[in-house]
């Protein structure tokens, strides 16, 4: 079965990159340190037999109790049904990770969104700006400790400041 090949490949990769490996509902999950992301992505892209060369999704999950943010990459393929999930763990106080734009130009918007909503900084991203929220928005709303402003506060925000 193709899936077992993939599981084995990911397991080997996990050992090589001192990451953790698990299989969650049949999907191989590779959890690594943020610094090894590019290596992991490149390796997953070039898996022999079952390459996961299509960056399906890029997002991040906030774990304030562990003081970690996981940047989650879902890699799939356009040749077969394989899919792996790579979780890159970064420090919550200083979330910095290397960009994937050099591997997939399509990571551009997804990384910008991740930066916008989760505050993860992507090293080497050509144009890392907020994308969905406005430029002078404060905070990163998808973090668990983000306090949604009250209605009054939001009304105040909606009024354009002079000079905008």
């Amino acid at each position: 079965m193709e899936n077992s090949v993939l599981l084995k490949l990911v397991e080997e990769l996990a050992q090589k990159l001192d990451g953790e490996f698990e299989a969650s509902l049949g999907t191989p999950v590779l959890k690594i340190k943020g610094a090894r992301t590019t290596e992991a992505l490149q390796a997953a892209r070039n898996f022999s037999g079952t390459p996961c060369e299509f960056l399906h999704d890029l997002t991040a999950v906030d774990y304030p109790d562990r003081n970690e943010i996981e940047v989650v990459y879902h890699l799939t393929s356009l040749r077969g049904p394989q899919m792996i999930r790579i979780k890159a763990v970064v420090d919550r106080n200083n979330p910095v990770i290397d960009t994937a734009v050099r591997i997939w130009p399509g990571a551009d918007f997804m990384e910008r969104e991740c930066f916008d909503l989760m505050g993860v900084k992507f090293n080497g991203h050509p144009d890392l700006r907020r994308i969905l929220l406005w430029d002078d928005f404060e905070g990163h709303p998808l973090r668990k400790d983000y306090v949604t402003p009250s209605v009054e506060e939001r009304k105040r925000l909606r009024i354009m400041q002079p000079g905008e």
Binding site: L25, H56, D57, H74, T76, R85
Partner: peptide, 16 residues
């Protein structure tokens, strides 16, 4: 955790 994708109309819709 679950990542599920369907062939949406404008592209794949995936929920994580």
């Amino acid at each position: 955790e679950i990542f599920h994708r369907v062939e949406g109309v404008r592209g794949e819709i995936a929920y994580y």
